[in-house]
Simulated assay, not measured.
Amino acid sequence: MTQNPKLAELSEAGVSVWLDDLSREMIASGALQDEIDGHSVVGVTTNPAIFQASIAKSDVYDEQIATLAGTGADVDATLTAITTDDVRSACDVFEQVFADSDGVDGRVSIEVDPRLAHDTDGTVAQAIELHRLVDRPNVLIKIPATKAGLPAITRTLAAGVSVNVTLIFSVERYGEVIDAFLDGLDAALENGHDIAQLVSVASFFVSRVDTEVDNRLEAIGTPEALALRGKAGLANARLAYAAYQEVFDLGVRFPALKSHGARPQRPLWASTGVKNPDYPDTLYVSELVAPDTVNTIPGKTLEAFADHGWVNTESIIGRAEESREVFEALTRIGVNLPEVFEVLESEGVAKFEVAWNELLTTTAEQLESAQG
């Protein structure tokens, strides 16, 4: 199968294309392999909402659920078995990508229970357990960048487990995530782990920033405010990339870890499906192009990019000052950015908790049906 030229160009520009979707049907039908072969996809991310949609809308899980019901498995054990089986199978699909990229890509992410977002010890315990259950070197464990999540990131890395840090909204919190990552590498090295085998990405959410800020700008309603719509998300991501360069390209702490084989924690652009129909539907892919980044792209957005996306190689690098000016303008107009980021983090955790609870309900109903 020939690679789509637009996605191949994106990949050649240094962006790792990860699909923000997974289901057992995709794996079994070969559709996931087709994404690798035709759309330059080199990784997959999952979250509670993705699993909820997959299990609720398909009967491919019925046989496994019936088997688990027969063993007396409860809903949590059933859900863990289903999700880790899917992630393990997806890891196997990406085994060659993982090998060819020397472990940089070919990664599949699975999230800790979002109800643990404010429980450091619980997050660490489940992260290590999920890593053990999936039992594949290319799995990434997703941990939210809450205050309780920061020490969990360090402790999970210290145990030799690779981490996808999720739900990052502000550059300030991103700095704390980087510190947690570096602390984790230091501890992992001290614990005797080969830190060359540890990989981490920092998932910076994009479209949700625009949604929240745009709502506030529209409430202000002045021409100056309305002119700033659709600018906050990209500016925030560009500032995040500048922070990444400052630490991993120019910083004084990382080189010592790099001498032991450590890899940088790459920025990952998440929430890149466009929610405002007034914006181009590939905006958060086309305008977030820089080396050593990842973009997790929903299926619909991936198809749109393959059809009519563009690659702007000048979309990030060298635009930090311009992005700071956007933030200064937002502040002057009356947008409280620290409050925006606080709201987005709280809502992000809450949304994943809702999806998780819906997933538990769906699984419980199927278990009850299988038990007769």
Rank of each mutant, 00 (worst) to 15 (best):
residue 184 G to W: 09
residue 94 F to S: 00
residue 40 S to D: 07
residue 168 I to D: 01
residue 83 T to F: 08
residue 297 I to F: 12
residue 56 A to Y: 00
residue 56 A to R: 09
residue 245 Q to K: 15
residue 131 H to Q: 12
residue 214 D to Y: 10
residue 255 P to V: 15
residue 17 V to W: 02
residue 61 Y to S: 00
residue 194 D to M: 09
residue 3 Q to A: 12
residue 255 P to E: 14
residue 342 E to L: 04
residue 128 I to E: 13
residue 95 E to K: 12
residue 107 R to V: 04
residue 335 V to R: 01
residue 27 I to D: 02
residue 196 A to L: 00
residue 89 S to F: 09
residue 174 Y to I: 02
residue 261 G to A: 13
residue 243 A to C: 15
residue 63 E to F: 02
residue 204 F to V: 11
residue 120 T to A: 12
residue 319 R to I: 06
residue 14 G to D: 13
residue 279 Y to R: 04
residue 362 T to A: 14
residue 123 T to A: 10
residue 62 D to H: 15
residue 170 S to E: 06
residue 319 R to A: 05
residue 371 Q to F: 07
residue 44 V to P: 03
residue 294 V to E: 06
residue 227 A to W: 09
residue 160 G to I: 12
residue 223 P to I: 09
residue 249 D to I: 03
residue 257 L to D: 08
residue 316 I to L: 14
residue 60 V to F: 01
residue 313 T to S: 15
residue 187 A to L: 14
residue 209 V to L: 12
residue 370 A to H: 13
residue 27 I to N: 03
residue 345 E to G: 00
residue 230 G to V: 12
residue 176 E to R: 06
residue 298 P to F: 14
residue 329 A to R: 15
residue 346 S to M: 09
residue 47 N to W: 00
residue 134 V to P: 01
residue 184 G to P: 12
residue 62 D to R: 13
residue 100 D to R: 10
residue 207 S to L: 08
residue 125 A to V: 06
residue 172 E to D: 11
residue 305 F to R: 04
residue 73 A to F: 08
residue 234 L to A: 12
residue 251 G to S: 09
residue 343 V to R: 13
residue 13 A to R: 12
residue 360 L to P: 04
residue 20 D to R: 05
residue 185 L to K: 04
residue 234 L to Y: 04
residue 83 T to P: 00
residue 90 A to D: 07
residue 227 A to N: 06
residue 40 S to H: 10
residue 70 G to S: 09
residue 17 V to S: 01
residue 166 T to K: 05
residue 361 T to S: 11
residue 193 H to G: 05
residue 314 E to L: 03
residue 215 N to Y: 09
residue 253 R to V: 11
residue 264 P to I: 04
residue 276 N to W: 00
residue 291 P to D: 15
residue 127 A to D: 05
residue 162 S to K: 05
residue 93 V to Y: 06
residue 102 D to H: 02
residue 100 D to N: 12
residue 323 S to N: 04
residue 86 D to Q: 12
residue 332 R to F: 06
residue 372 G to I: 00
residue 198 L to Q: 01
residue 271 S to C: 08
residue 23 S to I: 05
residue 309 G to A: 10
residue 369 S to M: 01
residue 43 G to W: 11
residue 226 L to V: 07
residue 129 E to T: 01
residue 180 A to P: 11
residue 200 S to H: 13
residue 70 G to R: 03
residue 212 E to Q: 07
